[in-house]
Design a protein around this nucleic acid. Sequence first.
RNA 1: GGAAGAGUGGCAGAGCUGGUUUAAUGCACCGGUCUUGAAAACCGACGUACCUUAACGGGUACCGGGGGUUCGAAUCCCUCCUCUUCCGCCA
Length: 426
Amino acid sequence: MLQLSFIRENKDRVLKGLKVRNYADKDLGIIEEVIALDDKRKSTQKSLDDQLAQAKVLSKQIGGLYKEGKRSEGDALKEQVASLKEQTSQLQEELKAAESQLTEQLLSLPNIPHESVPAGNTDEDNEVFKDWTEELPVLTGDALPHWELSKKYTIFDLELGTKLTGAGFPLYRGKGAKLQRGLINFFLDEGHEAGYEEIIPPLLVNEDSARGTGQLPDKEGQMYHCTGDNLYLIPTAEVPITNIYRNVIMDEKDFPVKLCGHTPCFRREAGSYGAHVRGLNRVHQFDKVEIVRIEHPDKSYEVLMEMLAHVEKLLQKLELPYRILRLCGGDLGHAAALTYDFEVYSAAQKRWLEVSSVSNFETYQSNRMKLRFRNEDKKMQLAHTLNGSALALARIVAALLENNQTPEGIRIPKALQPYTRFDILN
RNA sequence: GGAAGAGUGGCAGAGCUGGUUUAAUGCACCGGUCUUGAAAACCGACGUACCUUAACGGGUACCGGGGGUUCGAAUCCCUCCUCUUCCGCCA
């Protein structure tokens, strides 16, 4: 959620940012609407406060008069306060209405993109930030996509998952299960090496948490909702881990906050079926190690690059060809100011698969969840939040299987072998 | 799931037979005096949000969340949440 003060003071920048996000000219009026609503809110509160102050003084006088036994004088004052009350309750309603309208408008406004975000509509317009300069692996003609390899070597079973749950819930077995476990531990250990504290959070969160990181109301239909208890299955560890800091006032010396955690992620992925979602390319449940940072605003972009380097190192150790994209305005998530996507080349499918998304949310999330710190001048200031996948499993597995297939089986990268405890999957 | 009790400012803790409570007091933190330095002692400041003011300051709201009664609510009522103890169930 953008801060009103920011919108007021940086109107041009906000408008420019919305344009980068492909807002039509006619929709830009929302900014003026928001400011007008805020004016209305302010003036309403001013008159409400004045009246309440009057009523308060009078009420105190009534108490005094009653004590002195001056009942009739007290009763006379009562009538005055009663009529004041009618006005205040009306003003109160107006104030409430203005506030809720304002909140609704503010929630609908996306974050303002960082100045480096390229304009554009679709993923076609994303900018290649770092390309893969070596040759892309080329497989022989009989190379198999990962869903075929899976059948050949019994790695995961989508049919069984369908039997147990439904489409998109893979069941891993044998060496496939060990590969999963190995990857998770590898990623967590790398996170630990880089100074991240490991968290095992709850996999269900309440409404406040879902709102804090921006899943509600923006992505309501994308989460599994347990209506009986009004809890949501997490779509990413970002939600519980970042919300640790919801409603927290930090001290400047508490920075940096570096957290990581492995969780399964649950996504309904409503409406996204098609040729590109075969196998593990898009599933409803997958495992992911997430890294989360809470940072001083002056440091956050430096930290973003540091996170990029961390993810890059993981892919290098896994010996996977990758490239880094800078998302364009149209592809950028609602809450992010700047996002880099990592894509891994899947040789059998001959396409790039998104395996990580690293974002700086600046104050957008922290404003929603009231995550603040006391700065040098002892003043309250919103912190910056960042997060990134390091890494998401399902697609990494897909790429590993495909790129490393040999006639003898699937070759496990060296860095992973201590974790899988086998060097070939067959 | 059942019964009882409780949730007050960073912490502890009073107020809870409704009206100088602008939420006492202690501790912690911060600033100052004293000291070579520190401790102790003493003095002072010490919440959050919003509104207002050029600024000093002033105003309103907040005593787990929400709603209600009343001229007036931390205090009474309703409801939800959380915690503690006991019982039941259980990996």
